[in-house]
Design a protein around this nucleic acid. Structure first.
Lengths: 218, 218, 218, 218
DNA sequence: CATGAATGAGAGTTCATTCAT
DNA sequence: CATGAATGAACTCTCATTCAT
């Protein structure tokens, strides 16, 4: 049969992306075979190539689109918020909510970095750095305004991001804690961690080198 | 993982473990071929089987040995320390130092969980939970003693662990921050985050469900 | 090879034949993909099937049409020529000119014989034999008339044809030799080769078996 | 079963080369599948890779070894022969005998040139040119000595080679003509073609450009 | 204890071809 | 008459693993 009635290309591509996301999340990029992916979509393996160009390209596309949307939405969220404290709160809420909602995209964006070919890898690391710079800027503003105190805003940002991101590894909606409760706990941890008080170490001069982005190859 | 004590093979096994760790860290378990591993060791692929039983077994062994040593050393470290505050400080220092020193073991213990067969997976998750319970216990003691305040010690422990562990993704020895400076920053973040003060949310009743251990398949 | 007379499709079919000839010549029949062919024509692969019935059919058609035209033109050329010597000269000139002009058709008619299905293969080999018989007949006439001397007209014909055909593998128009100079050289070689003189071996009894037509499978 | 008793690597490689030669000759390089080749050898497709590096490499190796041996043997044959006439006779005899004996190597060395990757293609074309230069040198010597007459030794050489090589497309041992009879016919054709007499066209100035080696892509 | 040759499964990808739209 | 999406088979090549030597 040449074409399953009622199907069409756009819908098939979306099925492929959705199934691909699920499988890469569950098994890893290397462990997912295109035959398995095709079977989930309900087509033959070869038919995938009417929609994607290579397996690598599918991975890159999934991660890139996710990162771009992450940044877009963050920008829209922070747009209407004024003052470092409120911006930090908004960032925390946004980050946690988005990372809970897009658990799988988030996960593969970290864990499959090493499966990306160099050119694609570079592109994603740059997107990631762009996102991190948003938080660093908020912290810098807060320090400048005297609301936050930290020895190094870049290191602090990495610490905060690692902690917040960690949530998506264990949070289960419908579990005993609501999303808002989690956010409250983390907001407390971060706010107090940055609270300005006398006995904090002062800044250790220039900011640290940017991280490799979690990629082990670096 | 059979091992003939004292023989020449012990040295070969160690080479295999070392090269295997490096390759799995750099490329991932699925992406590492046994031919490649053998070539790094300087033998033929078939000869590996004089030292390991299967590829899966090599992975499991690398992770298990690491987890067991992690717990052992933590226990030895905490043995001589008294009081929740000092224990927390000791935990932070130990965790960061160990995670910096064993960067690769740590990384694959998280990232390759999903490559473990169910039986092996369960064994590692149990070891991980055992380690986490050490920190939770410290926090519980602190809360009971009125030194720490947090709505939920389990959630707080996961947050702390995620943040501390994140360090190994970006810390570079010889970089602009020393290990001790990093530890100081994180100790500050955590201590302040747990500092007892009036406006903290109170505990939210029973503890949350245990995390799947970062394994997406769960 | 269906063809709707006068329609737009005729032009498309001609494009397909022309592009197909070029691609088969350059890469070989097996190595040419229909997607590539379609892309050269500027249509989608599936659309080819509005003009050809199968890939095999396209190949067969290209070769058959070429062979039929070769024979037709030879017959028209020889029609007005009298005497074995002049006929031989005319044959040489015709063969070389045609083989230079239709370099690609000639080439694939030899090299892709083995890509033809048995039925198609047989049809082309028969056409080729028909062409060869034209030259053999000229030689036979010459021998009968005492103008040519050769031990075996069939073998001689194959030798002459191989030599003349070889020209299309290296001749470049606009190169240092003109077409006429090449023809002169070859005419000299052949004429002298067949020149009647005393020390030639006499005919070795009946003619040899017909060649398989260059097809190795035979 | 890991290894069929009594077999060994060298013998397997020879089987592969032999079967590969047969299959490429019969069907063409593109049309021969490695599964088919493996099946003829009596092993699995993957096992081929214990002996060859790629399919392309097998083809290149078959042609290269053939060309090198062709040149080697020609040199040994001509070594003990003096004078252009005898050298030409020896060349003709050698060429025809070798081309009859190595029918298949000869055929694929021509027909599969276009299946070679550029680097391999260049290497073979150079070997071929080296062989052709041997004949051109003989002709040049003959012309210089006044024994041969031809307008252009390079063109003549190509003509002679094409004619002689053509023999391998139709000669069948055990057919009605013996090898020696064929050689006699061709020696006669060539000798007479080069015979020095008054009415030959004189040399047409410098030699023509070397041919691309029959490769259609040129 | 290492080697080299084998297995059998499976990888990603390409192919000629079909056909509803 | 063209398109785009599908099929199912085939492709070259890699893999973990085995085992006679």
């Amino acid at each position: 049969m040449a074409r399953t009635a009622g199907s069409n290309g756009t819908r098939t591509l979306e099925s492929i992306r959705k199934a691909g996301l699920r499988l890469i999340y569950r098994q890893g990029y290397e462990a997912m075979s295109l035959r398995q992916l095709a079977s989930e979509v309900g087509i033959q393996a070869g038919s995938l190539y009417n929609h994607i160009s290579t397996k690598q390209d599918l991975l890159f596309d999934l991660i890139r689109v996710h990162m771009e949307e992450l940044i877009d939405r963050l920008d829209k969220t922070l747009e209407g918020v004024a003052g470092p404290s409120d911006k930090l709160d908004a960032f925390i809420r946004f980050h946690v909510e988005y990372h809970i909602a897009r658990k799988r995209e988030v996960f593969i964006s970290y864990s499959e970095l090493r499966s990306l070919e160099p050119k694609n890898y570079d592109a994603i690391v740059e997107l990631r750095a762009r996102y991190e710079r948003r938080l660093i800027a908020v912290l810098d503003d807060g320090v400048a305004a005297g609301v936050f105190a930290t020895a190094d805003t870049t290191v602090a940002a990495f610490g905060i991001l690692a902690m917040l991101t960690g949530v998506c590894t264990w949070f289960k909606p419908g579990g005993r804690m609501t999303k808002d409760e989690v956010i409250a706990v983390y907001t407390g941890l971060v706010r107090d961690g940055l609270a300005r008080d006398a006995d904090k170490p002062k800044a250790i001069s220039p900011p640290p080198p940017p991280p490799a982005g979690g990629a082990p190859g670096a």
